[in-house]
Design a protein around this nucleic acid. Structure first.
Lengths: 125, 125
DNA sequence: CGAGGTCGTTCACAACCTCTTCACGCGCAG
DNA sequence: CTGCGCGTGAAGAGGTTGTGAACGACCTCG
């Protein structure tokens, strides 16, 4: 038996995150992530379904309290989203919760189900 | 074991409100609600079945006494209704009580609709 | 040692979201 | 009918987030 710091493997749709191995697989293919990107992905993935505040993410990944005006988290979320979208286009994994933080959860990349407006199927014009 | 400020989860039909997590689920799917919308939904949901006056809602959500002519509550009730209708069309959750306020309770939406759908249990006869 | 790359951080600006308030029209009660 | 209450769409202000690029530190290879 061996000691496990956290979940050994985190699954989310076609995504598989392996904190123990410091890598992530998208549909079985290894994603090319930097250290920070990997750490952020882990921090988000192991909190799957919950809204995670920037402060908590920063503390977890950077190991220090989030300073005012530090946009690092946003920038790395962006980098992660880019790579995830490249690897698995039909899913969106990282969702923004305005004023709070981010939530990790695989969902269909549907343009629908967003704003509560009147015109959604207006794409035929 | 953990301390609970209020109800940890409020259920109402296919709706699930989680004040603790600042989110609401419609049929298991996270609804995209703003802070105010979420707060108003919580205020209504935890008073399920009762008629709640605008003043009480405003005081709860906005944390201040309702000023004359302030239509904020109405506007947000409208926004909530829109999103709820989008997520769960066959139910109506927020009902108007003219001159008093609103009441939260899941009920079948207008069975008057002639849509070619299942309408087997026509309880209103 | 110097060139070229990768990575992390910070900046600046664009794009977006929320909240509030207004305006107009309908509906319900008296 | 008449008046107020409520539904609803829109616009503006202000704050938040998305995004591409610039910089410097560091690493690797020739």
């Amino acid at each position: 038996m061996r000691l496990e710091t956290e979940a050994e493997v985190i699954r989310a749709g076609d995504l598989e995150v392996r904190p123990a191995d410091h890598l992530a697989l998208a549909r079985g293919r290894v994603m090319a992530l930097s250290v920070r990107e990997q750490a952020l992905l882990e921090a988000l993935a192991c909190r799957q379904g919950r809204i995670v505040a920037r402060g908590e993410l920063y503390a977890t990944v950077w190991g220090a309290p989030l300073r005012d005006q530090d946009r690092s988290v946003d920038v790395y979320v962006h980098k992660l989203r880019s790579k995830l979208a490249l690897a698995i286009p039909e899913r969106s994994f990282i969702h923004t919760h305005f004023g709070f933080g981010y939530r990790f959860e695989p969902e269909d990349s549907h343009p629908f189900h967003k704003g509560a407006h009147k015109q959604e199927q207006d794409g035929l014009r």
